Amino acid sequence: MFDIGFWELTVIAIVALLVVGPEKLPRVARSAGLWVGKARRFVSSVKADIDRELAADELKKALAKQAESTGLHEIIEETRKSIQPDESPSVKREQGTATIPNKPAASTKAEEPSAAITSKSNDSNSQ
């Protein structure tokens, strides 16, 4: 904090010895030491308070930034919308179900296993 060397301290000690006298010098030195200790503790507590305030401000800014960003739910909804294909005008809505013209009707459950067997046999033939 202060740049006080050995010679400066020696000069201060000699002046204090001449002004106060040898009998009162120990009491004065003790009380000066107590005052210096109190000053250091005060400065330390002020620094700690400032650091806490800065940390609280940084936390408030981080929370505000997080509150401004889109929420997880909104991100999920945007992703879900981007994955789902857009409905074209050729899709007709009838009673809550979508039908696409020029597309064969869905196969029944009895037909599905045979279609799967046929596709497996086609795959093995092509190899």
Rank of each mutant, 00 (worst) to 15 (best):
A29R: 11
A13H: 03
G5K: 06
E77H: 05
E53R: 11
A48Q: 07
G37D: 06
Q66W: 06
P104V: 02
F42E: 04
N125K: 15
K65A: 12
S121M: 14
A29L: 15
A13T: 03
W7C: 05
K38R: 08
V46Q: 08
W7H: 07
R52E: 13
N125M: 04
Q84V: 09
S44M: 07
I83T: 12
K24T: 06
I76E: 12
V91H: 03
I75L: 14
R80Y: 05
S88P: 00
R80I: 04
Q84N: 15
A115T: 01
A39W: 03
S114E: 15
S124P: 00
A105H: 06
A67F: 01
A39S: 06
N102F: 08
A116P: 00
E8W: 03
L54T: 09
R41M: 11
V11H: 09
S31E: 12
P89Y: 02
F6Y: 09
E111L: 13
L59T: 08
S107I: 13
I4D: 04
P26V: 01
A32T: 13
F42M: 03
A106F: 11
A64Q: 13
A55S: 14
T10L: 12
E8K: 12
I76C: 05
R40Q: 13
H73T: 11
E78L: 10
L17T: 15
K61V: 10
A48H: 07
G21Y: 02
N125Q: 13
R93Q: 11
G5F: 01
V20K: 00
T79N: 10
T70N: 06
E77C: 01
V46N: 01
A67Y: 03
K109G: 14
P22R: 08
I75P: 00
G96N: 07
P113F: 03
D57E: 15
K47D: 05
V36Y: 02
G96E: 00
F2P: 00
G21F: 03
K61I: 08
T79I: 09
I75D: 08
R52I: 04
V91A: 05
A98E: 07
S82M: 11
I100E: 08
K61F: 05
E77V: 06
L25C: 00
A62W: 01
V11D: 04
W35T: 06
T99K: 15
N102I: 01
A67E: 15
P89I: 08
E94F: 05
E87K: 12
P104L: 06
P113M: 02
L59K: 14
G21D: 08
F42S: 09
Q66R: 13
I83P: 00
E87P: 02
D3T: 06
V28R: 00
I100F: 05
E94S: 03
T118A: 15
S114R: 13
D51Q: 14
L59S: 15
R40F: 13
K60L: 08
E77Q: 13
M1D: 10
E8G: 14
P104W: 02
T10R: 13
A110I: 09
A29H: 10
S124W: 07
F6T: 06
S126M: 14
R27Y: 10
